[in-house]
Structure formats: C-alpha cells, structure tokens
Amino acid sequence: MISRVLTAKTWTPWVTGALTGLLAALCCVYGKTVLGASGGFITAASFAGKYLNMPWQDLLYFKFVKPPVISFQLIQFTGMILGSFTAAYLSSDFKLRLTPDEGMRGRSRSDIIKRWLTIFFCGILVEFGASIAGGCTSGLGISGIIQQSPAGFLFFAAAFAAAVPTALIMKRLR
C-alpha cells in the first residue's frame, strides 16, 4: 500500500493542494516569508551580476533591495530540486527531456529550437510579471490569498483572465 502510494506517478491534486496550503501557512508563520519562487530568481540574477561582472550589478536594486546574498528562497530552491527529483525518481517520471512529453508535434531540431525560444521569451514575461505583481503563482497566488491579502486575489484573477484567452488563441494557431 505505502509503496504503491510512493511510486504512483501522480497524487490527486486535492491532497497535494491541501498539503501545499498547510505548508504555505507554516512557511508564513515559521519561515516569516511567503512560500514563493520568483524572488529567488532575482537574487540569482543579482549573483550573476556580481560574479560575471555584469553592468546590472551597479543598479541600486541589486545593490540594496536584492543584494547577492544566500536567501531563504535560494536554499528553498535546492530543497525543491531535491524534492522534485525524489518524487520523479520514485515514480519513474525522471527523464532528461529536451522538450515536453506532450503538447508538441514532433522532436525535430526545429521543434526543439521553437520550444527553447518559447520558454526563454515566456520566462522573461513570467519573471518580469511576477516581480511587478509582487509575487508568483505560489508566492502571491497561494501565500497571499491564504493570508487574505487583496493583492493575492487581484493577481490570481488577472493572471487567469490573461492566461485563458492566450491559451485559446495559441491552441487555434497550432
């Protein structure tokens, strides 16, 4: 029974969601920060600026607001990668993938280039948008809403309202 649960490829989202909500609440209270991820990339960009000697290291933002110091979220990233790897390894879902398993026509070189360009440019949008909003799907969407912050609700509604027509248009274009 236990081994079947541990090796199941997916768990019901109702259970994983409930546990994540509980985890986010504990993170707010005992970690004194939101359970998010977008801030970690900003700190990583700050490190990249300093150690690769990039011009953005001199921006006031990367010097004072988000200086290159090991943050809660950067350590959390390490934990997340280990956690995700463990979950995927146990369920045989770990695989080196150049493109997603589903949702793409083929695996030719041009498909790979298309996917890589897509995720690069969308990555810019996602991180830039999350930074403007003050958090991402988990940091503001879950952690903000559970603390009953209006920012969380506004963010969630706006993200969904923009994402649904975008996805429908993309589906039509494919």
């Binding site: 998010g36 991820a37 977008s38 970690g40 990339f41 990233f77 997340m80 990668i81 995700s84 997603p100 949702g103 897509t118 995720i119 440019f121 969308c122 990555g123 810019i124 949008l125 996602v126 991180e127 830039f128 948008g129 999350a130 930074s131 403007i132 909003a133 003050g134 991402c136 799907t137 988990s138 940091g139 503001l140 209006p150 920012a151 506004l154 963010f155 969630f156 509604a157 706006a158 993200a159 969904f160 309202a161 923009a162 994402a163 649904v164 975008t166 996805a167 993309m170």
Partner: peptide, 24 residues
C-alpha cells in the same frame, strides 16, 4: 501593479506552461 504583473505572468505561463515554482 498586482493586476498588470499578474496579466503579464499569465500570458507567459499560458504559452510556455511554466511559472517560477513549476520551473524549479
């Protein structure tokens, strides 16, 4: 800002299927 940022993130997430937590 919460709304504009959320909308920009939503567009990127709908096309590439990632957000910061799911990227990690």
């Amino acid at each position: 800002g919460n709304i504009i940022g959320g909308a920009i993130l939503g567009i990127g997430m709908a096309i590439a299927g990632v957000c910061p937590g799911t990227l990690i």
